[in-house]
Design a protein around this nucleic acid. Sequence first.
DNA 1: AATATTTTGCAACAAAGTTGCATTGTTGTA
DNA 2: TACAACAATGCAACTTTGTTGCAAAATATT
Lengths: 139, 139
Amino acid sequence: MQDKINDILKKNHLSITEARKKILALFWESGNAMAHGDIEQKSSEEFDRVTIYRTLQTFVEKGIIHTIPTADNSVRYALCKDECGAGHHHDDHVHFICDDCGTTYCIDEVSVPKVKLPKGFKAAQTDLVISGTCNKCEQ
Amino acid sequence: MQDKINDILKKNHLSITEARKKILALFWESGNAMAHGDIEQKSSEEFDRVTIYRTLQTFVEKGIIHTIPTADNSVRYALCKDECGAGHHHDDHVHFICDDCGTTYCIDEVSVPKVKLPKGFKAAQTDLVISGTCNKCEQ
DNA sequence: AATATTTTGCAACAAAGTTGCATTGTTGTA
DNA sequence: TACAACAATGCAACTTTGTTGCAAAATATT
């Protein structure tokens, strides 16, 4: 896995540092989306808050991760698929946020339906965010 | 218009205060969605920040306004249609955020398509937010 | 008009995010 | 491998955003 992570960083012309390796690994391991706070906790204060902010920002710019909008003012981040590149995000899958456990899922199976907009409106990015109960919290 | 505003407040069992009247009027006049900051500016510091926070919170609870999630960590608020009531929001329309001018529109003409989720996932609310260029910024 | 109830503003605080700069770590080259 | 050039990090200080408790003011109720 370490190799995979180094590859991603190299491909994006980023120098390989402890913070970047660790944070990327966290995304990889968790599988789900994470908020800034989650990362801060999971890295057990190994890095400065500022470093985490800057690392996330860099990753978004390079198209390694993407943001997921939420209604509660807490942006989350998730790994992008391979098709995403610097400045171009292609995350046309649905995001699901569990109201119970707070987990954010990327529902890759479902793709975002095309929407016809009124005249003059040009879509650049489409975010479909569904909240409710996930399959673990549902009994 | 003042009557309409008073009606809305009465219907929702809210006492009629300057702050509530003014903030509701702002939503009515602007037509578009507003972030907390917009309201603070447009009311030209007539009210305390705290009052605005609490008023918005109350309005959301009563179903007078609804939140629109955005990818940049700045939740916006917009007037609900009549069908919305306390605790029940029915805002199945698309939201559009212009990357140029920042305006947030409620695209009432388009309704959010139903999405089939994997087993065990139960949807409570669906938000479809599209960003791009609006009909005013598009030349 | 007088009292009970809500709402507001203030102050103090907590959390989230940003910026500049010196120090440290990383990279490419000799 | 050692060195210089460059980039990333940590620290401190700060700004912005959001929250809470409480006394004062406004609103509603009788």
